[in-house]
Design a binder for these strands. Structure first.
Lengths: 214, 214
DNA sequence: ATGCTTGGATAGTCCCGCTGACCAAGGAGG
DNA sequence: CCTCCTTGGTCAGCGGGACTATCCAAGCAT
């Protein structure tokens, strides 16, 4: 199929597809002659994937390139590939102030992982972007006098762990290794907005249950 | 306290505070004379709240103004105020194509809510932004051949419902009505990044448990 | 009186995700 | 063969968002 058809079938304008090609998010098509290139189903799928990451997952274009680079790099082992891809995802900006709230949150988060018995507690603590995001979020809450106890935080963590188990169970249903890596990354990127939407719907529901529409 | 001190104690530059004042995210200080304005602890708290929404919650400035407007509007009842604030939060962009995947996802999401016995199933279905976000996410996954069954989606939904119960339980520990509304909104905005961070950490953990660092 | 600080206004900067205008190289119809 | 339309590629520009640097006049401190 040619560019125009790729555009039609994906719902993405040709100008935007050209932009993605330029940015390296899409591999160039098979060059038939100087003015014609041929694209296949694989290109279409990749394009849909890119769109989903950008529009649903709100991942910046540069990050999509990076993540896909890791996913495609079959010189690496599975865990490393997956880890590299996930670590490239956007996270909260580096905190500009290193105040006592931040340090307390750091301590609190480490304690949490330890109490949960998560193995990465020691390994990844200060390097994982996800850990840093957690610390920043907890610090922000503490600054605003959200004085919940450690037990509440742990309950949230256990819920998300169960979600992660569901994620990985689904990944294992995939046939090939390449599919599994792709599913794992996509799973993270697309499951998160889905969980967020479900969370808000659940809040609406639970709020209506408790208080009606008073 | 004057602007310079507000800046120092919050870690936000005076230029940025002036910008927030201009944008109506912060109420002007008490004007002492033509060149001096006085700010209090309430301003500081509000500023921290704004920062948390923008930096941790990634909420656009215009949306922060809107959300805070609803939170402050005590002419409304609690549920309405909260609902209005939550509905103002950013969500996925309106889908440009109305293809069969989208319609199937819409049907699937409605079925899910019905099966869960959530009351808002009929009421809010086609209007709630959260519902639309869910539909868009599910449609994107279907387009990419994520062929999971309805049971998996329901499991995720049940997990998020339990998270929502925790949220609202915490909100009820607050003393005043104003605090409760604020906590509910802030809870949604700050809990979500926290859940996301926990989700990724849990994935790292579970992945390491299953596959080590092969 | 002098010089420094303060709050307020204005215009400019940087990044990001496109998008429109243009261009040379085909291929199709006469 | 010539003309004309389409195709893929290049490049500059746009519009939105979040600041930020500069300027200014009014005060206060010495």
């Amino acid at each position: 199929m040619r560019l125009a058809e790729l555009s039609k079938r994906s719902g993405v304008s040709t100008a935007t597809i050209k932009y993605y090609l330029r940015e390296g998010l899409l591999r160039p098509g098979r060059q038939v002659n100087a003015t014609t290139a041929e694209y296949d189903e694989e290109h279409l799928r990749r394009l849909r994937l890119v769109r989903a990451m950008i529009q649903v997952g709100r991942v910046p274009v540069a990050t999509v390139r990076e993540v896909l680079g890791h996913v495609d790099d079959d010189s690496l082992g599975r865990t490393v590939r997956l880890g590299a891809a996930l670590w490239a995802l956007p996270h909260v900006p580096e905190p500009d102030t290193d105040d006592e709230h931040l340090q307390a949150a750091q301590h609190e988060a480490s304690e949490l992982l330890r109490a949960l018995g998560w193995r990465n507690a020691e390994l990844l603590t200060s390097i994982s972007p996800a850990f840093r995001s957690l610390v920043v979020a907890v610090a922000a809450m503490r600054r605003l006098d959200f004085d919940w106890d450690a037990e509440l935080l742990m309950s949230y963590a256990r819920l998300m762990h169960r979600a992660a188990v569901l994620d990985l169970d689904f990944v294992e249903t995939r046939e090939t290794e390449a599919e599994r890596v792709e599913t794992a990354v996509l799973g993270t990127i697309l499951v998160e907005p889905m969980l967020q939407a479900l969370h808000r719907l659940a809040q609406e529901e639970e709020s209506a249950r408790r208080y009606g529409f008073e």
